[in-house]
Design a protein around this nucleic acid. Structure first.
Length: 744
DNA sequence: GCGATCAGCT
DNA sequence: CACAGCTGATCGC
């Protein structure tokens, strides 16, 4: 959830202090900034008010049981307050339920030690019955709670409550790729999705502005290649990851460390003492080429070519530091299309990175669950509750009920109906039958299929997913070739980045393409102007010879429409059609308890800024240790991927290369490389771009591409357009009937 | 003095 | 540009 930060004054008890007291309103006299995304979730659900979740102040103090979805401060409000401490002292029964990882992280902070005897770690995906007893009246109520992996940060979970008042899902903060809900066994009953009364939903990015956020893998790979290219220049080329001090970047650290054999320097790591799979990739030894350390004046440090930890020399020579700042909003604000990595200064980069589901991921999730009610936990910045509900309600059953006859005579149907169509033009969301008959993805198929965002689409395309992803299980690493291109044009037209250092703002486009970029581009369902100029009809041969298929299914079918249309901006997808796909089928365990994630759709590279199309390059070729998986735990079930201390190491974990060896491999002749980083990055990349591809990569790539086909293309085109043809080919390849479904 | 809150700043 | 969290000032207890 985006900041729950500011206390929201309530009628029963206004926030204390400062402005709220009315006494300090005049302080400073400066204008208040627009508030960031604000929590709307007060800590309790309507159905189970005796439970407090992620809020531990005010009335929540009286809860019969407490739940913590993850260890971010904005979800821990009141958790160490005196009032709660006192309650624990007089009650042995009151418990805080959370995941084992969250418990570990919480208790490594001495400020929360007093919880020690009151925390109950629940295994993820293990339904547990909890007896809630009112300590004064003795009244009892049973509820079954199930923790589901949330993909937000280590230990993060969603809570599924089942009891007398129906089934309720509280998502906490989550990032789940499309189709993840369908893979969660415990969201299902038999073969069907459970009948969920209410979802309390993380709506941080529930704004068409964030229609598409590149998958974790895509972002990771962008960062990986940038870090790789810089650190390979010489032993004293160092990267500073300017990460906010929060759990959630661990999987990035782990993957960088695994891929490059370079541990990540952090200020603290004792909280991971019982999590060897993280611990072995971070270090408090400054003498490393990747840093994620913090300092109050870290920007000053950086400007002085110093790391926040103070390191200025490595291997006896001054370090050359670049910074990479992960962010999501920044990309969301771009008016022009950008890539996952954008250069913002001579030595500064922005990398796309998100802990929260994108607009389309949220919609996919919700439409799959299809609850009766939805309650947004967060109002996106600048958003209103009405606006968010306008987006979400059509995906709920309650909406349909409202839409039925009783409103008809009032004349409101048309307007509402229009809204419904506009926002979800891809299907008939209000067939409640769809909900009840939606099949669960069979267990054996999990991790191999890409259920679509809607039941209908899934029905029509499920087979394709299955057939084209049959290689998924073997997709254990990614590969792609990158080039950094300094673009003449500025990335942004307004707010220049604060770390801007160069007179002219160069944008380094981080592009990854297939070797046959032109042909793949032609498979695009939607073509840009530029694309159209050289658009040609897709060729079956190319399609079928294992070259990547490209299609912006999302743009096609989940097309942001009316509601979306205004500010809609698929951040990384300009519909140009050359979508890059990085081929990873699992997210690393460190991103919590979770997911065998198939990356969400590849984002479309921006063809208009392609100066150099990169060729595919196998990660194998560059990886220091050989065939290492970027995401080493994909075979594991969600439960197994939990960062529990009891959990075994992921496969291959022991293969952490000595980083000297790693660097030495690629640093030849680069010792005097520092002055112009970009040029040298390009040099290095040029050098490695000859690397050959491994044959099976192509298979993987192909298999991955199926994720782009989860939603049927819009039928009804008169003549077979390239995209149509592409679709037909796809179906044919899947051995399917090519009769198109009639859409609403 | 401590905790809560807010402004300001990453 | 804001995903989360720190610091310091201020206020209430």
């Amino acid at each position: 959830m985006a900041p729950l930060k500011k206390a929201v004054p309530t009628p029963d008890r206004p926030a204390r202090g400062g402005a709220a007291s009315g006494l300090a309103g005049g302080r400073g006299g400066g204008r208040k900034r627009a508030p960031p995304a604000m929590s709307r979730f007060g800590g309790r659900t309507r159905e189970y008010p005796a439970l407090s979740i992620d809020r531990f102040d005010r009335d929540n103090l009286r809860a019969r049981a407490f739940f913590l979805s993850h260890c971010h401060k904005d979800h821990m409000m009141g958790l160490r307050a005196t009032a709660l401490k006192r309650r624990l002292e007089v009650s042995l029964k009151v418990k805080l339920y959370c995941s084992p990882v969250t418990k570990e992280l919480l208790l490594t902070n001495w400020k929360y030690k007093f919880w020690e005897n009151h925390i109950v770690a629940l295994e993820v995906e293990t339904p547990t019955q909890i007896s809630l007893e009112d300590e004064t009246s003795g009244e009892k109520e049973d509820v079954v709670v199930t923790l589901l992996p949330a993909g937000h940060c280590p230990g993060s979970v969603m809570f599924l409550f089942e009891g007398e008042n129906g089934t309720v899902l509280y998502t906490g903060d989550f990032r789940l790729a499309k189709g993840e809900a369908a893979r969660m066994e415990l969201l299902h009953s038999g073969t069907r999705v459970k009948d969920i009364q209410s979802v309390y939903l993380d709506t941080t990015f529930c704004d068409p502005k964030f229609y598409h956020i590149p998958s974790r893998e895509e972002c990771l790979n962008g960062i990986l290649e940038l870090v790789r290219s810089w650190t390979s220049l010489s032993h004293n080329h160092v990267v500073w990851l300017n990460c906010k001090a929060a759990y959630g970047y661990e999987y990035l650290f782990i993957n960088l460390s695994e891929e490059l054999g370079i541990k990540v320097h952090t200020n603290k790591l004792d909280m991971f003492r019982n999590m060897p799979e993280i611990l072995c990739h971070v270090t408090t030894d400054q003498r490393t080429q990747i840093h994620a350390c913090r300092h109050p004046r870290e920007d000053d440090c950086f400007r002085g070519n110093r790391l926040p930890c103070g390191m200025t020399y490595l291997n006896g020579t001054p370090v050359h530091v670049i910074s990479i700042k992960p962010s999501t909003m920044w990309f969301g604000e771009r008016k022009k299309k950008t890539n996952v990595i954008v250069r913002t200064g001579e030595r500064t980069y922005r990398a796309c990175f998100s802990f929260h589901s994108s607009y389309s991921e949220i919609k996919d999730f919700l439409s799959y669950i299809c609850p009766v009610n939805v309650y947004p936990n967060v109002l996106p910045m600048g958003g209103t509750e009405d606006k968010v509900l306008e987006i979400l309600k059509p995906l709920c059953r309650s909406y349909r009920r409202i839409m039925e006859p009783r409103y008809k005579p009032l004349g409101t149907l048309k307007r509402a109906h229009k809204r419904e169509l506009s926002d979800t033009d891809e299907d008939d969301l209000f067939e409640s039958e769809l909900i009840s008959t939606r099949p669960k993805i069979p267990k054996w198929q999990r991790g191999e299929s890409r259920p679509s965002s809607t039941g209908q689409a899934e029905n029509s395309e499920g087979n394709i997913n299955e057939s084209t992803e049959s290689y998924k299980g073997t997709t254990t690493y990614t590969s792609f070739k990158v080039d950094f291109v300094d673009c003449e044009e500025s990335n942004d037209d307004d707010d220049d980045d604060d770390d801007e250092e160069e007179p002219e703002k160069n944008t380094v486009q981080f592009l990854s393409h297939e070797p046959n970029a032109t042909s793949t581009a032609n498979f695009s369902g939607v073509t840009s102007d530029q694309q159209e100029s050289n658009a040609s009809v897709p060729c079956w041969d190319e399609f079928f010879t294992g070259n990547k298929l490209e299609e912006s299914s999302e743009n096609e079918d989940n097309l942001p429409s009316s509601a979306d249309a205004g500010g809609s901006q698929s951040l990384f997808s300009d519909s140009d059609g050359v979508s890059d796909s990085t081929h990873i089928s699992s997210v690393n365990s460190s991103q919590s308890t979770h997911i065998s994630e198939q990356g969400s759709q590849g984002w479309d590279s921006q063809m208009d800024t392609v100066l150099i199309t990169s060729q595919e390059r196998s990660a194998l070729d560059l990886s220091t240790g050989g065939s290492r998986a970027v995401f080493p735990v994909l075979q594991e079930s969600p439960r197994d991927t939990q960062l529990d201390s009891s959990r075994g190491k992921p496969p291959g974990q022991d293969r952490l290369c000595a980083h000297d060896g790693a660097c030495g491999l690629e640093s030849k002749g680069c010792e005097k490389a520092a002055e112009d980083g970009t040029a040298h990055i390009q040099d290095v990349l040029a050098e490695i771009s000859d690397s050959s591809r491994t044959p099976d990569l192509e298979l993987r790539r192909d298999s991955q591409s199926s994720s782009d086909f989860e939603i049927p293309l819009t039928p009804g085109a008169e003549a077979p357009q390239p995209d149509k043809l592409h679709y037909l080919y796809k179906k044919l390849a899947a051995g399917e009937n090519i009769i198109t479904e009639k859409k609403v």
